[in-house]
Design a binder for these strands. Structure first.
Lengths: 131, 131
DNA sequence: CGGTATCCCATGCGATACTG
DNA sequence: CAGTATCGCATGGGATACCG
């Protein structure tokens, strides 16, 4: 055994700070270009494939499909198929995913709220650099 | 004007869900492979370059330097140089960055706590697929 | 110590076309 | 509708070497 799940005793680093810990992988599934937005979208409620795509500007079907599969594998999202014609597929958060979505929602809301401040900081920085 | 900072009225989407909103860029600075870990590291207190590098397994100096510059530009991190020989450079969170770090810390802690559950889900998924 | 510059490979990701 | 397959480029990111 090299790195146990919790990664408590393998090095001085813990959790995602250790690069050989499974939690690092999980963090990368969530904290990437699309993961946060997908999970946060589903916090509104169950959605179908095209609904999610339309809710997230600029995401391609390929990346949505690929990201969904990773998150389903991680046990964060459920995929439900109603056997009709055509089949109706719905994505929803698992109890585990719901916990995570609440946290990510807070993050997204904070960024939305603070974007003005951040843009102002960027402009200050750029002006200082050009001087 | 195309997209105002808050991105409230430009489309049906808001905040980072709109791909032309500045908040999307900010989200990508924070929610990527290294951003979350860097900001969370500094939640412990001010740190020097090599301390941060040593605290985050697998990060290269190039990516640390590059990511730090983006986060400094966003007004989330401060860079302080003490004029000694050799100069001593310290990175710390700004008040804005501290707010963010608290949120990200919660995220990292949750992932650390739930890694066992997630790994179990992954193994269940993989077994179901191979069957 | 605290970085930057360059090189180059790996992969993320979009565009397009196709399937049940 | 709900995807998958293939292609190809743009970017991310590591290795190495170098600078104040």
């Amino acid at each position: 055994m090299v790195a146990e799940p919790g990664c408590a005793g393998t090095s001085t680093r813990q959790g995602p700070f250790a690069d050989d810990c499974p939690s690092r992988v999980v963090l990368n599934h969530v904290a990437n270009r699309w993961g946060t937005l997908i999970v946060t979208s589903l916090h509104e409620g169950p959605m179908r494939f095209h609904q999610i795509r339309d809710n997230i500007g600029g995401i391609s079907e390929k990346m949505l499909s690929q990201s969904l599969r990773l998150l389903i594998r991680d046990g964060l999202i459920d995929r439900t198929v109603e056997p009709s014609t055509p089949p109706r597929v719905t994505y929803s958060l698992t109890p585990l995913g719901l916990e995570l979505a609440a946290l990510l929602r807070t993050l997204v809301d904070w960024i939305t709220l603070r974007t003005d401040d951040i843009v102002a900081a960027q402009e200050r920085y750029d002006r200082a650099q050009s001087a």
